[in-house]
Design a binder for these strands. Structure first.
Lengths: 236, 236
DNA sequence: TTCAGCAGAATATGATCAAATTATCAGGTG
DNA sequence: CACCTGATAATTTGATCATATTCTGCTGAA
């Protein structure tokens, strides 16, 4: 994912037992903001100011600036021409495009993952899914969003397809804020858990079934986003 | 595409006749670097240093820094863990993934464009294609790369699908440097012009034919990249 | 309503600190 | 005696911050 230092294993530091050097500040800021956007701590349309972030994150301006540029490039934020930056508001057209690309990319990732996944990872996915069920029944929105992301991220990491994984990851940043709105509107109770089909497909090594399950999952999630959008449009 | 201020037309400045405000420095740096990568002025594997760019572009450190972060997010540059940044070197797996996504996204863009394209734009595309032929027969690599990009960019802009266009644009940044190597290795003479089928499809408003033509174009271009990669791999 | 001035935020610079690669050199080995 | 190995010094480069400058949007008066 956007993870820092992917290839710095077996680099035991000489001093004490700290395993890896500390990431630069701009990386930390990026990860923090990224998580906030992904897990719905920022609302669609919300303004993002550099100074506000330097204050709230206790970071300098340069790191914040770099993180914001990165997120703009990710599509997680938009630069509004005049010097304003904000969280984008999805349109119906946007959602339609997201459905199309997510279906093709993420179903392909599922297919690739199913072909070579390690049984231990399937077990790990099952564990995540269990936690997901708990979050759903508890109405824990943040837990649901994070668990859902973790499930998909871990699955996609098994595909060994860095470019596709990267693309998928960026797409999630685009609808993260809206997903939060969906949960706030419908509640978590009504969210069906579409991961069971995926898990059985993975256990069976059935790549096509995995791809189909992913298609259904994507379709269902995006349709809820579309529904909220339509609702908001009707209100005005 | 990554163009600054997409929506600031008809914004006549009060003073004199200057049509639009000047873009910020980091935007200029970004566009410059982007063009250099896209049109092969940077070789795969080449190191990119901040200080080198501040010197060569005459810009300050912060704007250069921001542009680099953006390009890293685009996949046009990679951050090598230790603080080095360089132009990525594609692997065979990368190319395989690029073929898959480019085919789906760009053929869909062609389909959408064909459904609603203005005849005047088709004429403009034909003009670009003519220039492309000239560049090919003259062995003008830079002209070929720029013309080819312009053709696709103008076509995709007709699709009215900002998210898909954005994705496609980012993908081009990934293989730009390698394309230059392809031209250097094979020469431009051997490049077939695959745009004729596209143009007739567009004139006929035949969306499926346009999509098919795009598939062929993508497949052919990426296969040449793959061939160069295989050649280099065999050499070592 | 329009225009001028003002407040506040973003942009951009240069200086300073920290880290990493490169260069250098001493010591040992074939 | 030449060469390799290892550590250390020097230089280059990146990261961060504080500050000056420029631009935007707003407010209040004509």
């Amino acid at each position: 994912m956007g993870n820092w230092a992917v290839n710095m294993m077996e680099n035991e530091a000489p001093d004490s037992g700290r395993s890896s050097a500390k990431p630069p500040a701009h990386e930390n800021v990026y990860q923090t903001l990224r998580a906030q956007i992904l897990f719905g701590e920022m609302a669609p349309g919300q303004a993002v100011t550099i100074q506000g972030l330097t204050d709230s994150l206790g970071a300098g301006m340069t790191p914040v600036r770099e993180a914001i540029r990165r997120l703009i490039s990710d599509g997680a934020l938009i630069f509004q021409g005049n010097r304003r930056v904000s969280v984008p508001i999805l349109t119906v057209d946007d959602v339609e495009q997201l459905i199309f690309v997510r279906k093709t990319i993420e179903s392909d990732l599922a297919r690739r993952a199913a072909d070579q996944i390690d049984p231990d990872v399937v077990t790990a996915l099952e564990r995540i899914d269990t936690q997901l069920d708990v979050a759903i029944s508890n109405g824990d929105v943040a837990g649901y969003l994070q668990g859902n992301y973790k499930f998909h991220a871990l699955l996609y990491a098994q595909a060994n397809a860095p470019i596709l994984t990267d693309l998928a990851d960026r797409l999630w940043l685009r609808f993260g804020p809206s997903l939060r709105v969906v949960c706030g509107r419908f509640g978590t109770q009504n969210l069906p858990d579409r991961h069971k089909d995926m898990l059985t497909a993975l256990r069976n090594g059935d790549a096509e079934a995995a791809a189909a399950a992913m298609m259904a999952d994507v379709e269902q999630g995006m349709q809820m986003v579309a529904a909220v959008l339509a609702e908001d449009a009707a209100r005005n």
